[in-house]
């Protein structure tokens, strides 16, 4: 489904990604791990076209992403969440999720200003889809609450709901468990698997919680200083000497 081939990105002198290649097969949950600054978020940003790749190729469903404008990515079927929450803070939870449907709706300025029947129909459908996601993520009680007034954990779920609203084929999750307590992390793991099974998604998951990544991923890719250092099943990767080295090195 997703093929990353020899991707390189640098910022001035810093090499954020160096000749990284891996694949994400359809229907899988692939974990992307690595110490701080390894280049995980940079890779996500290449996938959503926020950053330009200096070299390499990214193929999604066999099609190159590197010439596609940013706002088309969602429509192709790639949804994402952000490491440091990027919600529409003054808008309600429901409105945030409804914005997530933007790429699946099409009415423009003119028909909206006149509120033609097509608009009412589309709004109705958007509304229903958004509510279904609020139910799935248990956000109904806060549907009308301004996002900025919610606790961090709830905001994370709003972001997940918003990403799901675009009906992605590939879901990119950047540290969804950060800031959650132990119990919440476990629930999140079950939730990600359940969503994958129910909505038939493919998931690329960046996470520092090793128990979570190793517990739910089908495959794991490990980065360090922008280079891929290991790839395989969770069991294989966990044994990898370079990975152990990287994490120990980062810790000391």
């Amino acid at each position: 489904m997703l093929r990353v081939r020899n991707v390189g990105v640098h910022f001035g002198g810093i090499v954020a990604l160096d000749d990284v290649s891996f694949e994400v097969p359809a229907g899988c949950i692939v974990g992307l791990i690595g110490p701080n600054g390894a280049g995980k978020t940079t890779l996500f940003n290449c996938l959503s076209r926020l950053y330009e790749c200096d070299s390499g190729e990214i193929l999604f469903d066999g099609r190159s992403l590197l010439r596609i404008p940013r706002h088309r990515i969602a429509g192709l079927g790639i949804g994402r969440t952000f490491q440091n929450l990027a919600l529409f803070r003054t808008m309600s939870v429901l409105d945030n999720v409804m914005v997530g449907r933007h790429s699946h709706t099409s009415t423009g300025f003119f028909v909206n200003a006149l509120r033609l029947p097509a608009v009412a129909r589309e709004e109705q459908a958007t509304h229903e889809k958004a509510w279904a996601l609020l139910r799935l993520l248990e956000l109904e009680a806060v549907a009308q609450v301004r996002v900025a007034d919610l606790p961090f954990g709830t905001q994370k779920r709003v972001e997940l709901a918003r990403a799901l609203a675009s009906e992605p084929k590939l879901l990119l999750l950047d540290e969804p468990a950060s800031g959650l307590n132990h119990e919440e992390v476990a629930i999140l793991g079950t939730l990600i698997r359940e969503i994958r099974d129910r909505l038939k998604l493919t998931v690329l998951l960046v996470e520092h919680h090793m128990s979570l990544v190793m517990g739910i991923s089908d495959r794991v890719v490990a980065l360090n200083f922008g280079k891929k250092i290991a790839e395989g099943t969770p069991a294989e990767v966990q044994q990898h000497p370079e990975l152990i080295q990287a994490y120990l090195g980062a810790a000391t």
Binding site: L50, H71, A74, A86, F88, M91, V99, H102, S103
Partner: peptide
């Protein structure tokens, strides 16, 4: 409003 609140996220949601 999405653009006003967070242009990067707005674009990622498919807004031109």
């Amino acid at each position: 409003m999405a653009i006003r609140d967070n242009p990067i996220a707005a674009e990622a949601m498919g807004i031109n």
